[in-house]
Structure formats: C-alpha cells, structure tokens
Amino acid sequence: MTNNEQEGIVKEIIGKLNKQFESRVRLGIMSVLMVNESVDFVSLKDLLDITDGNLASHLSALEKNKLIEVRKQFVGRKPNTRYRITASGRNAFREHLDYLAEIIRLKR
C-alpha cells in the first residue's frame, strides 16, 4: 500500500467517525456512562469540570440522538436527575472505539 492510498483510507475512516463524539465533553459523558450503570448530574459535572449550562446542553443533545436516556426522580425532596447509556449509545461508542483503533493501526 502506498502512502497516498493509506492516507485515503484513514481519511475515509475519519469521515465515518461519529460527529457526536468530536466534542471532548460528549466523549467524556459517554466514557463515564459506559462503565457506570447510571450517573447523576452533579457527579458528571464534577468529573468533567464544566459549568451547569454547558453540561446540560451536551446532555440534551446526546439525549435527542437517543444515545443516552434521562430519569428524573426525587431523593427526599431534592430532584435527582440520572443518566444512563442506551443500547444504541453503547453500540455507537463501541463503533467509535473500533474506528479509533483502526486509524491508529493504519498510521503505524
């Protein structure tokens, strides 16, 4: 394989990468939800170290795309919003990981 061909393949895979995961915050949210059954808003905020508004907008975008789901409940009188990854979110994230691995392998 020539260098040009290889670069072409890499570009093709980069094109396939999920645009949702380009943002550092969204990638972070998905990573956390991959290894935790469900996570509440405050824990996510602490882990990612961002503002309420910023986190909320990323979360609603992911929710709209059905990558995560939201469950609102009450702990005592305090509202507690918990997030969990959906089956399609899990698949999309795995696919993303596979593409990343593929790119690294080709570039080597």
Partner: peptide, 8 residues
C-alpha cells in the same frame, strides 16, 4: 483514547 480511558 487516553481521554476515554482516563474518564472511565
């Protein structure tokens, strides 16, 4: 990948 691993 490093960022993902770190977050996990």
């Amino acid at each position: 990948l490093n960022a993902i691993r770190n977050m996990m």
